[in-house]
Design a protein around this nucleic acid. Structure first.
Lengths: 121, 121
DNA sequence: TGCTCATTTGAACATTTGTTCATATGTAAT
DNA sequence: ATTACATATGAACAAATGTTCAAATGAGCA
C-alpha cells in the first residue's frame, strides 16, 4: 500500500524506493538470527525428519523402532536424529544397548500445526 | 516412558517394540500431508527467502526494492520470489513496469515468532 | 518505431544434502 | 574372551538447490 500510492508528482521512482528501503532496513533484525531461523526451518524441511518428529509426538522411541516404523535403515535414522539433536529439537536417554529419543521443545507442535493450516488453506 | 519401562519378564524386546510401532503408526498422518509440510518448511529454510519474508512483514515492495535492500541481484530475488509464489506465501500486483509483492498468509508471522523462540532458548 | 527500464526465464555451475554401505563403538550375555 | 545386538560414524554417490550470467518479455516513453 505505502509503496504503491506515493509514487506521484515530480519525484523520481528511485528516491521513493530508497526511502522505503531505508525504512524497512531499519526494522530488519541482524543477519545472524535470520540465518539461525533459516537453519531451524531447514531441519524441518525434510520429510524423514518430519515423520520422526511426528512419531515422537506420540511416544519416545528407540532408533530401531523409528527405523521400523518408517521402513528405513537404522543408519539413515541415526544420521537424521543427529541433525535433530544438533538443532536441540530432540534429546536422548540410554538404557542398556538401546537409545530412546524424545522431543526437546514445546514450540514444535504449534509450528507444525500452523504449517498444516497453511497446507490445508 | 512407556517404551522404557515395560520391557521386563519373559517378553522379548521385539514384541514390545512392534506393539509400540503399530500403535504409533496408527496415529501417523498419511504421507502426503507430511511431504507437503516438509515442502513448506523447505521454502522457509533459506536465509534469502527468510529475509524477503521479513521485509514484507513491514511493507509490500517491488523486486528491485528487495534486491536493493538485500544487496543481491534482481535475478536472484526474482527466482526466490517465484519459489515463494509457488508455495502461495506471497502475491503480487503489477503497476506499470514494476511488480509489487506482498505476503499472502497470516500464519507466517506466528510460525516465525515461534521459530525465533526456539532459537533464543 | 525505437529505446529504456523492471522483471522474468533458462542454462550452467558450485555447493549442499540424504541415503547407502562398510566399519567402528559400546553394552550385555554366555 | 567371545559373541550378539543397538547405535554411531565416515566416505561415497546421486539428487536437489541457490546464484550468476545472458537473453527474453513486456510496459512506458521519446
Amino acid at each position: 500500500m505505502a509503496a504503491d500510492d506515493e509514487n506521484r508528482g515530480s519525484l523520481e521512482q528511485s528516491e521513493v524506493d530508497e526511502d522505503l528501503v531505508a525504512q524497512v532496513r531499519e526494522k530488519m533484525p541482524e543477519d545472524e538470527p535470520l540465518y539461525d531461523l533459516a537453519e531451524l526451518f531447514k531441519v524441518f524441511g525434510d520429510s524423514t525428519r518430519i515423520k520422526i518428529i511426528w512419531a515422537l509426538f506420540e511416544s519416545d522411541m528407540s532408533v530401531g523402532d523409528i527405523a521400523n516404523l518408517l521402513n528405513m535403515t537404522q543408519s539413515a535414522i541415526s544420521h537424521q536424529l543427529r541433525v535433530l539433536k544438533n538443532a536441540r529439537l530432540v534429546k536422548y536417554k540410554k538404557s542398556g544397548k538401546t537409545v530412546y529419543y524424545s522431543l526437546n521443545d514445546d514450540h514444535i507442535k504449534k509450528i507444525f500445526e500452523l504449517g498444516m493450516e497453511h497446507i490445508m488453506e
